[in-house]
Computed example of a mutant assay.
Amino acid sequence: MTTATSAPVWPLVRLEILRTLRNKKFMFFSVIYPALLYLLISGAQSGTEKIPGTDLTAQLYYMVAMASFGALTSVLIGNSEKIAKEREKGWVRQLRLTALPGRGYVTAKIAAAATVTLPAIVIVLALGAVVKGVRLDAWQWLALTGAIWAGSLVFAALGVAIGYLATGDAVRPLTMLIYFALAILGGLWMPLSVFPQWLQDISAWMPTHAYAALGQAIEVGDAPHLKDAALLAAYLVVFAGAAAWLYRKDTRKA
């Protein structure tokens, strides 16, 4: 029974990955753009001076920030826009006529989106090591990659939820609004110390703040903080639950 219902999921995952990799515009903004931003922003900063409020230099701080930003771009924008367009074109309705269970479609979207975040993460980390001279232990490089990749599942689930919430015309402005708000309030573009205190207090509860904090803790040799991991887990439950509910609601409309 399990094999019969889950088997169609993996071909769909492979199809989604191939479609994403063939989208040159999307790959540029999710993979190359964050890497260029990292070189640009960190290049204008001192190599020894610490970012206010952290124990990290600009090279370390923005390496995690831009790797997280690239992963966020891949899973959030990619998922939401594709799903909204597929709903309009009837592709989702066609899938419902196959043996693919409802949860399989949502799982495939999250899994495929999370898979294509790896190039964005690895390229930024490689630039940090090769171009910016960042030196970390082997376990830190592996832990950084794993933490940033695993954390991207939270935003992949959010992308699925937005894709079922918005129509094809509304999905882009809605996604971009959420995308920029999460990036800015999470401290991915600039340190939170530049914000007024009341905004810093809000930022501390943003999923992107907890997401970047995972990598920042690893960079200074610590384990990720329990609060950040718990906050991301809570957001994952909320976003995945919303995606599942919206999928079922959309199914009843069809």
Rank of each mutant, 00 (worst) to 15 (best):
G215I: 07
D201A: 09
W91K: 05
Q59E: 03
L158Y: 09
E49A: 15
G47N: 08
A138Q: 01
T251N: 15
Q197D: 13
W205E: 10
A210Q: 06
L192T: 08
A129G: 10
T251D: 13
V9Y: 13
L40K: 01
T48D: 15
Q94H: 07
I32N: 02
A7L: 09
T117I: 14
P101S: 09
L95T: 02
V237D: 02
T48Q: 14
T54C: 14
V237S: 02
E86W: 03
V130R: 09
F28N: 00
T5Q: 13
L214H: 03
G102P: 03
K249C: 13
Y105H: 06
T117P: 06
M63N: 01
L21Q: 10
A143V: 03
L127I: 08
A147S: 10
A129E: 07
G241R: 01
L40E: 00
L60V: 03
I123A: 06
A65Q: 01
L118Y: 09
V220C: 13
L231Q: 08
I17H: 12
V31D: 00
A35V: 09
A170E: 01
G104N: 07
A240C: 07
Y164L: 10
V75R: 01
A67D: 00
T145W: 10
D222P: 11
M176C: 11
A212H: 04
I123S: 05
G128C: 07
L125V: 11
V131A: 07
A183G: 02
F69A: 00
A240G: 06
E16T: 04
K85S: 08
V160Q: 12
F29A: 02
E81P: 02
M66C: 01
V124A: 11
T167Y: 08
V122N: 05
I178A: 15
G78I: 02
S6M: 14
G215Q: 05
Y33D: 00
K249E: 15
V92Y: 06
T48N: 13
R252E: 15
P191Q: 03
S6E: 15
L95Y: 08
Q197I: 02
M27V: 06
E16I: 04
L21M: 11
H209P: 07
T145C: 10
L97K: 14
R14V: 10
G90P: 01
A229L: 15
M66A: 00
P34K: 01
P196H: 12
A143F: 05
K249P: 12
S30V: 05
A112S: 10
P224M: 07
V31C: 02
A170F: 06
I17F: 10
L100I: 00
A35Q: 04
R248Q: 12
A138R: 02
H225S: 13
A242W: 12
G78F: 05
V134I: 13
I110N: 05
K82W: 09
R19W: 13
G215R: 03
A223W: 13
V124F: 14
M206W: 13
Y179R: 04
L100A: 06
Q94N: 08
G90W: 04
R252V: 09
L118N: 01
A240L: 12
I178S: 12
K82T: 06
A213S: 09
D137K: 11
A229T: 10
G186C: 04
I41Y: 07
T251L: 14
E81W: 08
K50Y: 15
G163N: 03
Y38H: 02
A84W: 01
L192Y: 14
R135F: 15
T3H: 15
